[in-house]
Simulated assay, not measured.
Amino acid sequence: MYYVFFTGTAGSGKTTAVKEFRDYLLDQEMDVAVVNMDPAVETLPYTPDFDVRDYVDAREVMERFGLGPNSSLIVSIDLLLTKATDIKREVGEIESNYVLVDTPGQVELFAYRDTGRTFSSLLVGDSKSVNVFLMDSFIAREARSYVSLLLLSSSIRFKLGIPQVNVLSKVDLISDKELEKLLAWGEGEDLLDSLGVVDDYSFELVRTLIESLEVPPIPLSSTNREGFDKLYAEIQRILAGGEDFVTEENNSRL
């Protein structure tokens, strides 16, 4: 099994991307399962094959311990780790080519705390995994925000310690001209100039950040599935050297 995590800031479109990418894989006759890793989510546009809310509900934790929304989520993830044996057994019963993992909106769990990484490792076990980091294209239109998202992306990659694909989410909400600018920035063109006056430290930091990008962020729209082919191809390149699964249904590469 291949595990594909979807991370990003709150509102970047993770849950919708998970739902639409699941449907995309199903259309390709792939076996796919979905894990909901957010104990605070109220409704989902899909039926998860594994749901952490069956073990811990962040709202119940909030009421029981008198916590705020963010604190209750942190405590909920910590509590999940006490149920590691049961969770590992249930996840182990999933039999799919791909397991898509919908993560909490509070990206800090993965960028700055060990609990997110520990729980992710628990889910994956010995299987291969990749992280898809969603950069909200509407926010990324401003150069300094674009750089800030890249820095956050780098932080999460470092913390999780697994391969990562960056995508520009919700590109259907921006103009063609704005998208063209973002794509140019992803190639390292004009980004430094667009930042305006910066000190030497910031200049070198941004230049290093651009040079470290293996692949420019992929433009993605969950509304019309723009970029889904490219995202799938990049995931396959990382996890399987570009090879597709051979499915039992048609015994052919997809």
Rank of each mutant, 00 (worst) to 15 (best):
S212V: 09
S222H: 01
W185P: 01
S72H: 00
S153A: 13
L151M: 11
A111S: 12
D136C: 15
R157M: 05
G11R: 11
R144N: 12
D31F: 14
M62E: 13
A40V: 12
D49G: 13
V101S: 00
M1E: 06
A143Q: 06
P48I: 00
F158S: 06
K230F: 00
E211S: 14
Y232V: 07
T118M: 06
S154Y: 03
V147E: 03
P45K: 14
S76H: 03
T7D: 08
D126S: 13
I174W: 06
V101C: 01
T103Y: 02
F65G: 15
T9P: 07
A58N: 05
E249W: 12
V56N: 02
T118H: 01
T43A: 10
L195Q: 13
P217W: 01
V215Q: 15
R141E: 03
Y24I: 04
S72K: 03
D176Q: 13
G11H: 10
D31N: 14
G188S: 10
K177L: 06
P219Y: 03
L192G: 08
L79W: 05
G241T: 03
A58C: 13
E204K: 15
I77R: 04
L209H: 08
F5P: 01
E204Y: 14
G242W: 08
G196H: 13
D54V: 04
P163R: 09
Y201P: 07
G242T: 05
T208C: 11
R64T: 12
Y232W: 11
I235D: 07
N250H: 13
Y3R: 05
R253P: 01
M30L: 11
E187D: 14
D229Q: 13
D172I: 05
V167E: 02
F5R: 03
L151T: 13
I162V: 09
S175I: 12
V197Y: 11
L25V: 05
V132W: 01
V91H: 02
D244N: 15
S221A: 04
L183T: 12
L134V: 11
